[in-house]
Design a protein around this nucleic acid. Structure first.
Lengths: 131, 131
DNA sequence: ATTTTAAACAGTAATAATTATTATTACTAT
DNA sequence: ATAGTAATAATAATTATTACTGTTTAAAAT
């Protein structure tokens, strides 16, 4: 894969955020630096960077796909109230057990849905009967 | 939600398979019993059944969405060789730890990508140097 | 340094999956 | 049986993503 200024800018955007943007948001951010970049270029590079293992894709149940350049092993939390997508570190995954069972594990994607601590607290304040 | 023969048939299809079909495949199976069912009806009912907690949706990184009427807690394995989507039982999830940290967990979706034991074995047979 | 080659590009068209719309049909409570 | 409303078939619209085409650009060969 030869050098490309667009690909570099795209990866740069992802490395400078913890917000797990979707393709359209990456596109908006890249345009701040390269105003005439095309959306197709963003999609193509996001796909290629995913295939070459330089970023992870995150498929959410609302149909959206988000991107994460943090390749360390971690899970994600999607808050159904505020929509935020957060990182969850420190939860061991099941790769070892599966490899022992004969699987060849390439990657593990865990997405947890619910309320983040902030939104959970707010709901409790409104209705203290909630657990 | 009032009774509907289409919704019943759709749920029936999902309860009688372990193959995690996508919407189009569910549509084809439902048409064997109700030939004039419309694709939109299948999509709407799949969405509503998901929202009401009668089935789980499974978003795969190739962009496809698959459906599973088995609501017991389990993860999924997607084989990148044969494409099969299998169930993985017996792997504890991280709900308890997250609830302790203040999250309100609604559901945990784990998808593992790699090679299933069958395809992993075949690859090893072809090239014994593989781990 | 120039030429060559192929990958990457912008811009646009096309595709695929899903959702919305609308007129009609079918449950269910009365 | 009827009224009221949810569900439906058929189709149109939308959205996210990919493919195409002529042009540009990075990197290799001369």
């Amino acid at each position: 894969m030869r050098y490309s200024s667009r690909r570099e800018a795209i990866l740069e955007v992802l490395k400078n955020t913890k917000e797990h943007p979707d393709a359209e948001t990456v596109y908006d951010k890249v345009r701040e630096k390269i105003p005439n970049v095309s959306l197709g270029t963003v999609y193509r590079n996001l796909r290629e960077l995913g295939e070459s293992g330089e970023l992870n894709t995150l498929e959410i149940e609302d149909g959206s796909t988000h991107f994460d350049a943090d390749m360390s092993r971690h899970a994600h939390f999607v808050c159904k109230e505020c929509g935020k997508i957060g990182d969850l570190f420190g939860y061991d995954d099941i790769s070892d057990a599966l490899e022992h069972a004969g699987y060849k594990v390439e990657c593990v994607k865990t997405v947890v849905y619910g309320l983040c601590p902030e939104c959970a607290r707010k709901q409790k304040d409104c209705d203290p009967s909630l657990s």
